[in-house]
Simulated scan of single mutants.
Amino acid sequence: MRWFEPLLVILTLVTGLVWALDKWVWKRAPREDSLLDEGHENGLIETARSFFPVLAIVLVLRTFIAEPFRIPSGSMIPSLQIGDFILVNKFAYGLRLPISNTRIVPIGDPKRGDVVVFKYPGMTPDDPQKGEDFVKRVIGLPGDRVGYHMGQLTINGVPVKYQTIRAVPDGDGEGMARPSELRTEDLPGHPHQILVSDDSLALGAQGDQDLVVPQGQYFVMGDNRDNSLDGRFWGTLPEANLRGRAFAVWMHWGHDGINLSRVGHSVP
C-alpha cells in the first residue's frame, strides 16, 4: 500500500503540530475562548494529544527498525510463500527517511544471498508497477559479471553449482503448473533452494542475461526462477531503491487461511 507511509507521516506531523501548539502556545495564552477553557477542551486537540505519541512510535519503528510486508506473488517460492507476512530489517543497509527513502546514515550494504525488499524501478518510465514493493534475492554485487543462460547462473565466469532435491510435478502451485524441480543453488557464501521448471530449455533464451553490475547497483532474482519478474528483465537495482533485508516470517494468511506452521520461520 503505497499510500500508507505518506498518510502515516502526514498524520504524525499534523497531530504533532497540534500537540506542540497546545503544550507551548495555547495553554500559556489567556483563555478567552470557552473552547479552550479547562474541562471544555477542543475535541481535535484531545484527539491529537492522544494519537500523536502512538503515531510517532509507529513511524519511528517502521522507518528505522523493522517494517512488515506481505508477499503478494509466488516469485520467491520455495523460500517465501504467497500470504507470508515478513519482517524487514530497516537499518541493515542504513537509516533512510520515510517517503523519499533517502539514506541519511550508512550502516551496511547488501551481501550476496540477502533477500531484500525494494521499490521496483520499472521496466519503462510509465510502468504501472513502478514504485511498488518487490522482494528478491541479491545475486550480483557491484562490479560482478553475471551470466544466466538456459537456467545456468555464472558469477565472474564461475558456474554456480546445483543439486536436485526432488521433483515437483505440480509446479509452484500458484500459477506455474509446469512440472518442476526443487534444487539447492550453491550461491557463493549463501546456498539456498530454488524452483526451476523442467522445461526451462524449451523456454529458450527467456530471461537470459550477461552484464556487469554497475557501482551503486545490484542484480536480483527470484527463487522461483521461471515465474519471476526480476533483474533478468528490467536490469540492475539502484541502491537508492532498497528498503531493507527480510529476516523472518511473522504470520501467514494465504488462500487456505492462517498457517501457524510458517510463523517464526527465518528467511533463508
Rank of each mutant, 00 (worst) to 15 (best):
P78C: 07
P78L: 10
P78R: 05
S79M: 13
S79I: 11
S79D: 14
L80W: 08
L80P: 08
L80Y: 09
L80C: 06
L80M: 04
Q81N: 14
Q81H: 14
Q81P: 01
Q81F: 14
Q81G: 10
I82W: 01
I82K: 13
I82P: 14
I82H: 03
I82D: 09
I82V: 15
G83H: 11
D84G: 09
D84Y: 14
D84V: 09
D84S: 06
D84N: 12
D84C: 11
F85S: 06
F85N: 11
I86Q: 09
I86H: 07
I86S: 11
L87D: 06
L87M: 15
V88E: 08
V88P: 09
N89F: 04
N89S: 15
N89L: 03
N89R: 11
N89M: 04
K90Y: 09
K90F: 12
K90C: 11
K90D: 04
F91V: 07
Y93D: 12
G94S: 09
G94M: 03
L95Y: 13
L95Q: 02
L95I: 07
L95E: 01
L95A: 07
R96N: 00
P98T: 09
P98D: 09
P98L: 04
P98A: 09
I99M: 04
I99K: 01
S100I: 08
S100G: 03
S100K: 00
S100A: 10
S100L: 12
T102M: 11
R103F: 00
R103V: 00
I104Q: 06
I104P: 04
V105H: 07
V105N: 05
V105F: 13
P106N: 06
I107N: 02
I107H: 05
I107T: 15
I107S: 13
I107M: 14
G108H: 00
G108N: 06
G108E: 02
G108P: 10
D109T: 14
D109C: 03
P110L: 00
K111I: 00
K111D: 13
R112Y: 03
G113C: 03
G113Y: 02
G113W: 01
G113F: 02
G113M: 03
G113I: 01
D114M: 01
D114T: 07
D114A: 02
V115F: 10
V115S: 06
V115P: 09
V115R: 03
V115H: 05
V115Y: 07
V115D: 03
V116F: 09
V116H: 04
V116A: 08
V116P: 07
V117M: 14
V117I: 14
V117R: 01
F118S: 10
F118I: 07
F118P: 06
F118H: 07
K119Q: 14
K119N: 15
K119W: 12
K119P: 02
Y120C: 05
Y120R: 02
Y120N: 03
Y120I: 03
Y120S: 09
P121D: 12
P121I: 11
P121H: 10
P121Q: 11
P121W: 12
G122N: 10
G122R: 03
G122T: 02
M123V: 14
M123S: 15
M123T: 12
